[in-house]
């Protein structure tokens, strides 16, 4: 095992273990923090695999933005800070979750182990540089990129519209009930 291999293994173990803690923890805030660790470790994995821009985006978007959002959401929904046993679904559902998780992971792992076995590659570090990625996006992936901006815009509009207060509460005189929209 070479140095990069060892590093990769360590980061992978960290990512998997903290991911597992993030979905099994009984304190919501801890779960969010374990998610940060897991996603951060993944950024490391990307770096080792030669995808530096991806690693950067991972840190910026996920660790920076998404996790903050999640933590805000946890606070806004008055999630309990102390350990709670009401975070997990009922037993039957949990059993189904274990089965589904293991089988999805198992199938993927089985397929990949069969396909990759002891395949090794030389990491092309320069490939994932910002310059190359930028050129690739604007030369080859322009259409999905532009479409992505529409998606983001629409998600933004939707999130804002959804987050506004109920119109019926705001203007009680002018309601939608004529059309049965709001009970």
């Amino acid at each position: 095992m070479s140095g990069p291999d060892l590093l990769l293994t360590a980061l992978a173990l960290l990512a998997a273990a903290s991911g597992l803690l993030a979905v099994t923890g009984s304190r919501v805030v801890h779960c969010a923090l374990w998610l940060v660790v897991s996603l951060g470790a993944l950024a490391g994995v990307y770096l080792v695999l030669g995808a530096e821009v991806v690693a950067l985006v991972q840190l910026l978007v996920y660790v920076g933005a998404v996790v903050v959002l999640v933590i805000f959401a946890l606070m806004l929904t008055r999630a309990p800070v102390e350990p709670s046993d009401r975070l997990d679904a009922p037993k039957g559902q949990k059993l189904a979750a274990v089965v589904a998780g293991i089988s999805v992971g198992g199938i993927l792992a089985g397929t990949l182990i069969y396909a990759l076995q002891d395949l090794t590659v030389k990491v092309q570090g320069e490939q994932g540089s910002a310059r190359n990625i930028g050129r690739a996006v604007f030369s080859g992936w322009l259409l999905p990129f532009e479409l992505l901006s529409v998606l983001l815009l629409a998600a933004l509009v939707a999130a804002i519209a959804v987050s506004r207060h109920l119109p019926a509460e705001k203007r009680p005189g002018q309601s939608l009930t004529e059309d049965g929209g709001v009970q």
């Binding site: 559902q93 189904a96 089965v99 589904a100 999805v104 199938i107």
Partner: peptide, 9 residues
């Protein structure tokens, strides 16, 4: 979602 994921498997 259980149905979706198990269905996929």
């Amino acid at each position: 979602a259980v149905w979706v994921l198990v269905g996929a498997v």
